[in-house]
Nucleic acid binder design. Structure first.
Length: 107
DNA sequence: CGTATGACTAGCT
DNA sequence: CAGCTAGCCATAC
């Protein structure tokens, strides 16, 4: 059993390209929907952005709160756009880019 | 073990 | 809509 944070890394690392997830979402998948605060701490201390695409993690409103890499938010937005995610007004349309942990086969 | 911090979220003004 | 407060959890010191 690793720390809660390590679990977060594992989940965050499996977020598909062109999709984003929220801190609360990760907390839920980790098993602690109330630990979204710890999720943010994990991202902040993230050991490697290459294995932990924290730039694909945004807030509940699709808004980004911070980023430890590059220029910070700026870099985060650029990375998302490079992944195909449209960032408008510094926010992401969760209705379109929110990562569904269970991609339904039909809709 | 207790205190302090943080990339959060929801509610109120 | 924007700004602030309170509640919340895990980690670091």
């Amino acid at each position: 059993m690793q720390t809660f944070i390590e679990k977060i890394y594992s989940i965050a690392s499996m977020i598909p390209k062109g999709k984003v997830s929220t801190y609360k979402q990760l907390a839920q998948l980790a098993g602690n929907p109330r630990a979204y605060r710890a999720v943010g701490s994990a991202m902040r201390k993230n050991p490697d952005t290459t294995i932990v695409p924290c730039h694909r993690v945004v807030g509940s409103d699709g808004k980004m709160h911070g980023y430890s890499g590059g220029e910070g938010i700026e870099t985060k937005i650029i990375k998302l756009r490079n992944e195909g995610v449209k960032v408008v007004n510094g926010k992401v349309n969760l209705d379109t880019f929110l990562w569904n942990k269970a991609p339904e086969k039909s809709l």
